[in-house]
Nucleic acid binder design. Structure first.
Lengths: 206, 206
DNA sequence: CACTTTTATGCAGTTACTGTAATTTTACTG
DNA sequence: CAGTAAAATTACAGTAACTGCATAAAAGTG
């Protein structure tokens, strides 16, 4: 590594074309709507072959949605599993939020995606589906936490873990909508706190 | 109308071909997997043109998933809005469950769909997406209920309604999984009750 | 400068799905 | 029962996303 900014011409070129395609796609989609843009149009605008497009992003929605939500880091998971408190749900939501926050660094791209997902039900659904796909892995983690906190390993513990994960998904989904719709001015952390408080209020008040 | 069992040759034939296509599709999908079956194959097996297939079901997943979850009846909605208790979440879940229960009468088809949805993540996602599409309408209903029960129409009431709907979605999703996976022997109503109790336990215990 | 590995492209093919116009089938009417 | 309107079915042509494969052009390496 000669200089921090480059890691070889190859990598730089790669990043450049990726970025070009991404920007072209988002810009076109913002103008004509997601369904109003063809992959061919994106390719023409970014001057690559269709095959190259699919080599980079795999699918049309892939270029709009961006990289999938990453699994939390091992360290974060470890911390979660051995945390002291009883607020498993809250901790899980925090865990997920942290993982997502370490994603897209680019402000502009992020905002474009946000707008597009918000106005395209199809994309919103896929985004939700992506989160759902993490569930299987999360259940195991939550289960570990429950066991670590001394809960008896009786029947029903798995169900509880599953429900916690599903609930966390709800909270995330709620926050996503809230955040995407731009109704709130709060920063992400506030939105999250409010959401959790709301859940408690609703379920306790019966 | 000459006889209660028929409503004209036209309608009977229609029902017949629809059923033929449906059975062919499910049978083929069970054997080769959802992705392993082409629309052409279904058409050949049920002896209709591809165009007819799409006239009937609109899409490949349409024939597997069956009719979408119906909105609750106006009467049921009315009852929900003016119900006395404070358990809005519980009542909402019951409302949705009732609407779903009045769906598919055919046992065999229902079971086939269940198996296929369970073993095909793609289909599971679409099924969840379908539920999500009801949300917009449900928020209005829940909001009406909150107002009817004397809640001040301050800012935040819409957010509360949204969260209640999202939570209900979670509970339904949890139950769906629980029910589809066949882990439980309980009837749907029991599954539902357990799920609600679980939610309360989790969110109260913090 | 050879030589290997990556990256980009062309091209042909598959699959889901749509619009349209023609053709067949059912229902109705005098 | 002939004649006709309405509905169902079909063929056909086309679009759009996506894949596999073979080949060409860079880029990295000794």
């Amino acid at each position: 590594m000669t200089h921090p900014t480059d890691a070889g011409l190859r990598a730089r070129k790669r990043a450049a074309t990726q970025s070009t395609i991404e920007r072209a796609a988002l810009s076109l989609a913002l103008e004509h709507g997601y369904d109003g843009v063809t992959v061919d149009a994106i390719c023409e605008a970014s001057m690559v072959s269709q095959r190259t497009f699919f080599n980079y992003f795999g699918s049309k929605e892939g270029v709009i949605l961006g990289p999938p939500p990453p699994m939390p880091t091992d360290a974060a998971v470890e911390a979660f599993v051995h945390a002291a408190g009883h607020d498993v749900l809250g901790d899980l939501v925090s865990l997920l939020a942290a993982a997502i926050a370490d994603g897209e660094p680019d402000r502009d791209l992020f905002r474009s995606r946000r707008v597009l997902i918000q106005r395209t039900p199809e994309l919103m659904n896929r985004e939700v589906a992506r989160m759902t796909e993490l569930q299987t892995g999360l259940v195991a983690i939550v289960l570990a936490r429950l066991r670590a906190s001394g809960r008896a390993d009786s029947s029903g513990l798995t169900e509880e873990a599953r429900m916690i994960v599903v609930l966390a998904g709800s909270v995330m989904r709620y926050c996503l909508e809230q955040y995407f719709s731009g109704t709130t001015t709060g920063n992400p952390r506030e939105v999250l706190e409010n959401a959790l408080a709301l859940v408690r209020r609703i379920t306790n008040g019966s």
